[in-house]
Design a binder for these strands. Structure first.
Lengths: 210, 210
DNA sequence: GTTTATGGATATTGATACTATCCATGGCAG
DNA sequence: CTGCCATGGATAGTATCAATATCCATAAAC
């Protein structure tokens, strides 16, 4: 398959495919002559994955590259690959200020982790985001939202277990599990988010329409 | 309070405040003379909200403006304000192709809405995203993830109910409910996402570390 | 009364994600 | 075998976004 057909099959414009090749998101095709390469099914799959991450999940191209490098590496442990994916979808900020709200939030997060026996790296990017989000909710006068964190965590714990079970049950090789976990992590977020919006819209329609 | 103090109190640089004023994210201060305006507590709060939506939730500035216009309008129903917020946080695509995967996904979504008695506008942006996400999961060979949708929906339904209850129970006026719902919708997403990543990391650490 | 800050307008920057153009070469139709 | 379109590879250009920077006339503070 040459580039024009790859473009046709995947729906991605030729210049964009060239761009992804340049950025090493897509491995080069097999050169059959200095200006002729042949692409295969792997390229079609990879292109689909890239577009899903970029278009649906809104992951920046540079981060998609990181994730794919993790997937392609065969020396990296699954845990590290997942860490890479997590870093790709959270914008790593650092706790800037030490306001009372932030400290209270940090304490709440510590308590949450302890009570659920969640063991996470202390520099996990999601930790900072969670702390900042809770602190911000409080500083915006929405303490009652921050107080829902435990209820959210209950629900989250439930479907994360299901997710991991589904992913590990349906794949024989570690490579396939890795790919599945990464797709589940990133696209799963988009999925949950849309479900939540639909649930909200439905409740809102019943309660507040007209 | 003049602009320098507003900047100091909020931690937002003066040029950025000017930018938000230009873009009408922030209402102008009260002019006390042709080149002197005074800002109040409302501006500090608003600035905090803007930064939370932009930095934490990653909402584009133009969409933040839409959301705030909804909040400031006193003729708009809560349901419409929520719709605005939903549109702000989903990139509205339209179903491009009519592949078998997409049609299967659309059917699955219809069945889901029916079985849960969710009534949503047929042009809700989250509908398209949900359909595309399910279709993409299938096209990537992750049918077992797409099959988890019902389990996700269970969990989502649970915490959406809690959220709405918390928000309506703690606020006397419709204006406050609106603000709370919008903050809960948008920041809640960030919150849930970080909780999910933490839960995943914890499970992953136990299962696959080393 | 001089220095500094302000509001308002316009211009510039840096990052991101593509698109477009160019060119030498190679496959292929006639 | 020959003319032309497609290709790989490189470089340059575009659009958008979110700020920053610069100017300027004026007003406030010391």
């Amino acid at each position: 398959m040459r580039i024009a057909e790859l473009s046709r099959v995947s729906g991605v414009p030729v210049p964009t495919i060239k761009y992804y090749l340049r950025e090493n998101l897509l491995p080069p095709g097999e050169l059959t002559s200095p200006n002729q390469a042949s692409y295969g099914d792997l390229h079609v799959r990879r292109l689909r994955l890239i577009r899903a991450l970029v278009d649906l999940a809104g992951v920046p191209v540079a981060q998609v590259k990181e994730v794919l490098e993790g997937l392609d590496s065969d020396t990296m442990s699954l845990h590290d690959q997942i860490g890479r994916a997590h870093r790709a979808i959270t914008s790593h900020r650092q706790l800037t200020s030490c306001t009372p709200d932030t400290e209270a939030a940090a304490a709440q997060v510590d308590a949450l982790l302890a009570s659920r026996k969640w063991t996470v790296d202390s520099d996990a990017p999601a930790l900072t985001t969670l702390t900042e989000t809770i602190a911000t909710m409080r500083s915006l006068g929405q303490e009652h939202l921050a107080d829902l964190v435990n209820a959210y965590a209950d629900a989250v714990e439930k479907f994360t277990d299901l997710e991991i079970a589904a992913v590990t049950a349906n794949h024989p090789t570690p490579d396939q599990i890795a790919e599945s976990v990464i797709i589940g992590t990133i696209l799963g977020e988009t999925l949950i988010s849309s479900l939540r919006l639909l649930a909200q819209e439905s409740i809102s329609a019943h309660r507040w329409h007209q």
